[in-house]
């Protein structure tokens, strides 16, 4: 089953990390991903730029309107994602728990199974 693991956290806190803190956290997160990557179970992962770089297209009266900023204004925002191809939900949960353990932030990991529409379009 393909799962997307969506990371939600308070943006202001995460972007207040110093360069050293950031590097240390990223290093630990990377170490957690490595076994999965070696087993060929890790798909594309990404870190989202700050929400200030986001643009939203919304349904308008006549034609869609373009709005600066993220879709929803909430304290916890989507800051990154992993995609994994694992046998069971337990495996995805175990992976997320490992990520959570090495991440000092109050990040929540939402595990969402997904369908692939265009298999060829996504490099894995």
């Amino acid at each position: 089953m393909l799962y997307a693991i969506l990371c939600y956290a308070d943006e202001e806190t995460v972007f207040a990390w110093s360069k050293e803190e950031e590097a240390a956290v990223m290093g630990r997160l990377y170490a957690v991903q490595e076994p999965l990557a070696k087993a060929g179970k890790l798909g594309p992962t990404g870190r989202l730029m700050p929400t200030t770089a986001a643009t939203t297209v919304r349904k308008g009266k006549d034609e869609p309107i373009v709005i600066d900023g993220p879709f929803a204004e909430t304290k916890e925002v989507l800051l990154g994602f992993y995609t994994v191809d694992v046998e069971t939900l337990d495996e995805a949960i175990a992976f997320s728990k490992q990520l959570s353990a090495v991440n000092p932030g109050s990040t929540s990991y939402e595990i969402r199974p997904f369908y692939v529409f265009h298999p060829g379009a996504v490099p894995s």
């Binding site: 308070d10 202001e12 806190t13 207040a16 990390w17 803190e21 240390a24 956290v25 000092p104 932030g105």
Partner: peptide, 15 residues
Amino acid sequence: MTDLAWIDLALTAAR
């Protein structure tokens, strides 16, 4: 990061 370092960051962000 320790607990306190984390709290420190949260306080800075909230300030």
